[in-house]
Design a protein around this nucleic acid. Structure first.
Length: 512
RNA sequence: GCGCCCGUAGCUCAGUGGUAGAGCACUCGGCUUUUAACCGAUUGGUCGUGCGUUCGAAUCGCACCGGGCGCACCA
């Protein structure tokens, strides 16, 4: 797309020389104005501006000021010009808080300043000094007595009546998207507040935030394909982490009793409205707790965040009310599958029975080796989408949970839950396996399967197993997908909406 | 990885085999000291890229690039 190429060339900054492209007429106009400003001795990129008020502060402070009223209150405001009317008589300036109108009348401004207005463009940053007034038509304004350009823009913003809606252009030029579509900033602000609230919640309970390695020799702790990278000095390939689990548990072994990390995770898998190759996950571990206590803890934490960000225990997501009021439903995997499909996991003991059952339900199978894994596949393909309100699915088969403690009353199960909302997995928690001999056996089993070609089976992390042999307390641990939580809290249909700069494939092939 | 759909001016979109268009934006002019998203004129395009079919391709075919949605994988 030609227009995108132009953006890429000038904003994308892919190391290409910045030359005026063929047809860069709009940009040329602005370069002309920039030159003219400099010739007049005006620095189009000055160093600072000290404002007295944000736009929103003025709107609140003068909310009662009646129309067609002048004051002598002098203020200084600054922001980006996004609209202009009546040949720069009225100028709409936006700062982070909102809009304030500038009133640039020749009675208040020197002639040179009036003439210089024609060198401004929509998109420029401006700082203005003047008195507060409300116009006849009711718009709160600053009657400008002096102004200065704070940053000249060279590229035109898509400030048209039709808006800026091209999805690809919006994601590739997110800074433009944020300027044109304020909801983008609102969404990212809510995400930020959610994460801040989460930190405050955990810090208030005595947790320590930790930072564990991103670059790893073996990427363990989850079932996923990792990214590979290379360290030149050591001349070794390294993996980007797919989870923080194993290192955080080593911190538990090392004597920390409450730790968490809110960190970027990298998984080399498909991209969709619910998956970005890099995403953010909270993982937390607490000694001496089990998965039952952890479910209570999770309810409390997420409810707190929802109330803080959304003002109540309920959120409207894509037309569906999600209610976080405690307690949340807890259902075993066996019961959930039984309810939806009529299949009783306990009645299926052989792979032949399991395969037949899956085929009847139209469930596709891949690496499944045991009936339990087939039941899990049936759950994922048939039951998961039905879990709309917050639901803890509990008691998973041992085969698919190599890091989880066996169920206290059933050897074939583990003490694990996953939290589902709107048919999507949002969190995964369990009573952490702390028996080193059991752990070694289960990871060896995973390693065998990896060797047999299952790329998502977990590797054998000998450092981790050795650490556990020094002794590990009973521990509860959970991972929470921050991006998906942010989607729910902001009613965002795509994960890309809650990520400032989502992963995009380059427009041109490498080396082109 | 698979399926369906999309890519035309800075933005939003028409045009589906016969001279590349509209609105907004930009530039110039007009009018105007309280709203101009006005009026007039101008300007602006390798029609995503390439190869074909054809007298003639934005339009039809094939391949490729990029994107959206759904499926799969997962969080």
């Amino acid at each position: 797309m030609w227009h995108t190429c132009q953006f890429t060339r000038h904003i994308g900054g892919e190391g290409m020389p910045v030359t005026a492209p063929e047809g860069g007429r709009l940009r040329s106009e602005r370069l002309r104005k920039l030159k003219e400003l400099r010739e007049q001795g005006v620095n189009p990129y000055p160093y600072s501006f000290r404002r007295t008020h944000l736009a929103q502060e003025l709107q609140l402070k003068y909310a009662e000021l009646p129309p067609d009223t002048e004051t002598e209150d002098v203020v200084k405001v600054c922001g980006r010009i996004l609209n202009e009317r009546n040949t720069w008589l009225f100028v709409d300036v936006f700062d982070e808080s909102g809009k304030i109108q500038l009133f640039c009348h020749k009675q208040s401004l020197p002639q040179t300043d009036i003439e210089r207005l024609r060198l401004l463009d929509k998109g420029d940053f401006i700082g203005a000094t003047g008195t507060i007034r409300r116009t006849k038509s009711g718009e709160l304004s600053v009657r400008v007595t002096s102004y200065e350009i704070l940053g000249k823009s060279l590229l035109p913003l898509p400030l048209t009546w039709d808006g800026f809606t091209d999805v690809e252009a919006r994601y590739r030029h997110r800074h433009v998207d944020m300027i044109i579509n304020p909801s983008v900033r609102e969404t990212l602000k809510k995400r930020s507040i959610a994460i801040r609230t989460m930190r405050e919640f955990l810090d208030a309970r005595g947790f320590f935030e930790m930072e564990t390695p991103v670059l790893q020799v073996e990427a363990g702790g989850a079932d996923a394909r990792p990214f590979t990278t290379h360290h030149y000095a050591l001349d070794i390939d390294l993996y980007m982490r797919i989870a923080t689990e194993l290192h955080l548990k080593r911190l538990i072994i090392g004597g920390f009793e409450k730790v968490y990390e809110i960190g970027r995770i990298f998984r080399n898998e498909g991209i969709s409205t619910r998956h970005n190759p890099e995403f953010t996950m909270l993982e937390l571990y607490q000694s001496y707790g089990d998965y039952l206590e952890l479910m209570d803890f999770t309810e409390e934490m997420l409810l707190h965040i929802v109330e803080k960000v959304c003002g109540g225990p309920q959120v409207q997501y894509q037309g569906t009310m999600i209610d976080f009021t405690r307690p949340w439903r807890r259902v075993t995997m066996r019961d959930a599958v039984l309810e939806v499909t009529g299949v009783d996991a306990n009645a299926i003991t052989t792979m032949d029975e399991a395969r037949k059952c899956a085929a009847e339900l139209g469930v596709e199978l891949q690496h499944q080796e045991t009936p339990a894994e087939v039941i899990n596949a049936i759950f994922e393909q048939k039951v998961e989408k039905t879990l709309i309100q917050p639901t803890f699915l509990i008691d998973y088969p041992v085969e698919i949970s190599p890091l989880t403690k066996r169920h206290r009353s059933n050897e074939a199960l583990v003490e694990r839950f996953e939290l589902f909302m709107y048919g999507r997995e949002h969190a995964n928690g369990y009573s952490e396996l702390s028996d080193p001999l059991d752990q070694r056996q289960r990871l060896e089993d995973q390693a065998r399967r990896k060797a047999e070609g299952n790329e998502e089976a977990q590797p054998l992390d000998l450092d981790f197993i050795e650490a556990m042999e020094y002794g590990m307390p009973p521990t509860m641990g959970i991972g929470v997908g921050i991006d998906r939580l942010a989607m729910l809290l902001t009613n965002s249909p795509s994960i890309r909406d809650v990520i400032a700069f989502p992963t995009m494939k380059p427009k041109e092939p490498e080396g082109a």
